[in-house]
């Protein structure tokens, strides 16, 4: 009789623990997804700004066709990239291309005085920053989620529940990370 009661208590406790664990994991996973969508919004915004930028700058920079082509190419590659890792790589390329573009702009004082261009530059710089900050926030959430997923004893039930470790979003190398910091 007592054995049956103990067994029953154990089963109920296990069930409660499973439910709590499952819900906790779902909450963390949703946070990761939410953080990712923030990155996504900013990356899309960057893609939307680029055609405008190219249009505005073209009139002033007649001899920089290669730079423009590089940006356009990088943009379409980034737009087509799928998966977190690949996306990170493509977006890094785009950041690099934009960084080089803004270096070249230094040689065109007329363009630098253009109000429209200045506004676009501010938007783009800010979007770069936002991508950086959103990435930082996303990676924090991924770290939290993965740590929970891999700790004992959650690691035994996470697999059967169908949870998989989330991927970090990496942009390349320290030099790349400094590129968005454009001084005014």
């Amino acid at each position: 009789m007592t054995a049956a009661v103990i067994l029953l208590v154990l089963i109920v406790a296990l069930g409660l623990w499973l439910a709590a664990t499952y819900n906790g994991l779902v909450r963390l996973r949703n946070q990761v997804r939410n953080a990712w969508s923030q990155i996504d919004v900013q990356l899309k915004r960057r893609h939307d700004l680029i055609p405008n930028l190219v249009e505005t700058a073209k009139g002033y920079m007649k001899h920089e066709r290669e730079t423009f082509e590089e940006i356009t190419r990088a943009r379409s590659a980034a737009a087509q990239a799928a998966g977190v890792a690949e996306r990170g790589k493509a977006e890094s390329m785009l950041s690099g291309a934009l960084g080089r573009f803004f270096l070249v702009v230094e040689n065109y004082p007329d363009l630098k005085a253009n109000q429209n261009f200045l506004a676009l530059q501010e938007e783009l710089t800010s979007t770069e920053n936002k991508v950086g900050f959103a990435r930082q926030f996303y990676n924090d959430q991924v770290l939290k989620f993965n740590t929970r997923l891999q700790s004992f004893p959650v690691n035994f039930v996470a697999g059967p529940f169908g949870f998989k470790a989330a991927e970090f979003f990496e942009l390349e190398a320290p030099a790349e990370r400094e590129a968005p910091k454009v001084q005014f």
């Binding site: 506004a119 501010e122 900050f133």
Partner: peptide, 16 residues
Amino acid sequence: APQLYNIVEEMKIASG
């Protein structure tokens, strides 16, 4: 104030 707004939005994202 686009720039001010951008800066606040950047920090909003960073701080979650």
